[in-house]
Nucleic acid binder design. Structure first.
Lengths: 129, 129
DNA sequence: TGCGTTTCAGACATTCTGTCTTTAATCTAG
DNA sequence: CTAGATTAAAGACAGAATGTCTGAAACGCA
């Protein structure tokens, strides 16, 4: 009964992605990008999506200007972090460690990426001393 | 229109979690664990959940024995991997690197965990030489 | 003032999800 | 072998999520 809705839907994400790129945007701007050849119905769709993003606190709307301007309140990094924590909560008792292990062991990282990861760890060490 | 349903629902996950622990189980076993004081309706619910997990290829059902025995076909690690890749696909153009960066930078890892991560990287290095 | 744009409110069809009921099949104890 | 119990199978159901769309009201500007 108590379903847990997605934090952000894929369609909603397509909007967030634009907002991250543009810093801020009006409905019109978003529609022109997402539906270059769209009619008035897609306009309303984007509007509705923004409305929902707003009620989910992922977006703010500035009513002081006209037309209204929208802005993301959550950065891409933060959303990534939430998703990772979600996955950890559901599959690893909340621990993030297994996620890292999984990623490193996945063999999908290039040696360059592994190298830069090591360097990052070194940096952290330096800061801690 | 093309909604993308969750890979595995939270309720479905509660079942998968048991199957991972038990290796295999009958409906009855799962019900007794998940709904110790449940009636016949929860039994049917678990049944339906298993049925759906099966159609999603996350579970197999052995019809040769009676009662039927269910088994997870996907390990916890694999599911973690899929979720991570999903997140990467939706938020990082498919690259896993940003996920690691995010995790390491999240400050939610203990020094012990960071240490063991470093050791793991060392191991990988050894194997590659 | 009139017209085009924007905002707002809400309807709508689908699908998902968890739950439940009912009926048929199967096993087992006596 | 039969009755009682357990399991399997099929499907109904309500509530919510989702993406889309319609229509009317509000607004700014030529």
């Amino acid at each position: 009964m108590a379903r847990t809705p997605q934090d952000v839907t894929e369609t909603e994400l397509s909007i967030l992605n634009q907002l991250w790129d543009l810093e801020s945007a009006t409905v019109r701007q978003l529609v022109d990008i997402l539906h270059p050849d769209g009619g008035s119905s897609e306009y309303a769709t984007v509007q509705k999506l923004l409305e929902r993003l707003q009620s989910k606190k992922y977006v703010t709307r500035n009513r002081d200007v006209w037309p209204h301007v929208f802005e993301a309140t959550v950065g891409r990094d933060e959303l990534i972090g939430r998703r990772l924590q979600n996955t950890a909560d559901q599959l690893c008792n909340g621990s993030l460690q297994p996620l890292i292990t999984n990623l490193v062991r996945s063999k999908k990282l290039s040696t360059d990426e592994l190298q830069s990861l090591r360097e990052y760890l070194d940096e952290l060490d330096d800061q801690n001393t």
